[in-house]
């Protein structure tokens, strides 16, 4: 499984698409929002947690269909399914690779984007923390959606339609952590819920994803 993780990361680095694309998209959203709502610092600061979270979610969504479809098209997925690796492990390591290539860069870059959105000082810790705990859930849930649509040509739009409703709880708790942080309230409960969703998704969803992949491969 480490080999698979290593390969996926190498592919993400060599083919671009992974690290660069998600971050650039994140940047563009953050640049566009002030054009839409006006440059007023107070307003931007107030909506910053939500915007950062929605932007992270969309940046994540952008690269989801690559998780399995490339491997499906070139036959690697068939070969992986016949390999000694359990398919659940394949799904999990691919989701982790997706997170390392898309989610983690967003987490690391979040303070810079928060600066652009004039997020108040108190919000920096919570936004980074919430993205750190929440983006793994986005990758794992996204991998489930990608597994569902892997056999469908041009399934990107369908993938979004399937995955976005599943993202609702993660988004709500994630943005809530950041918002409460900005307002100086305690953000323990939503943070725990967020972590719970991430870990539960990581532990359970690969089984559903692997089952769905098997159906799609036969």
């Amino acid at each position: 499984m480490m080999a698979l993780l290593r390969r996926d990361l190498t592919l993400a680095v060599r083919a671009g698409g992974g690290f660069g694309l998600g971050l650039s998209f994140f940047l563009i959203v953050v640049v566009l929002v002030p054009f839409g709502v006006g440059p007023e610092t107070a307003l931007l600061g107030r909506i910053a947690p939500g915007i950062l979270w929605v932007a992270a979610l969309l940046a994540c969504l952008l690269s989801l269909d690559r998780i399995f479809s490339l491997d499906f098209e070139d036959g690697s997925l068939d070969l992986l399914a016949t390999s000694p690796l359990p398919l659940e492990g394949v799904v999990a390591s691919k989701a982790v690779a997706h997170w390392l290539a898309t989610g983690l860069p967003l987490v690391i870059a979040a303070p810079v984007f928060a600066l652009l959105m004039s997020l108040p000082q108190e919000g920096y810790g919570p936004i980074v923390l919430s993205l750190l705990l929440g983006t793994p859930a986005l990758s794992v849930i996204g991998a489930f959606g990608a597994a569902l649509t892997v056999g469908i040509k041009r399934g990107g739009l369908l993938l979004s339609l399937l995955v976005l409703p599943l993202y609702v709880p993660t988004l709500i708790f994630g943005a809530e952590v950041a918002r409460r942080g900005v307002e100086g309230q305690g953000y323990g409960p939503p943070l725990l819920m967020l972590a719970g969703i991430s870990f539960a998704a990581l532990a359970l969803l690969p089984f559903a994803s692997a089952a769905v992949l098997r159906v799609n491969l036969r």
């Binding site: 399937l162 609702v168 709880p169 709500i172 159906v215």
Partner: peptide, 21 residues
Amino acid sequence: SVLCLVGSVFALLSRYAVNFW
């Protein structure tokens, strides 16, 4: 069917999250 199963869990979770939110 699998989507319905997974979706049910997330729908319940959303219901709870929305109340919270």
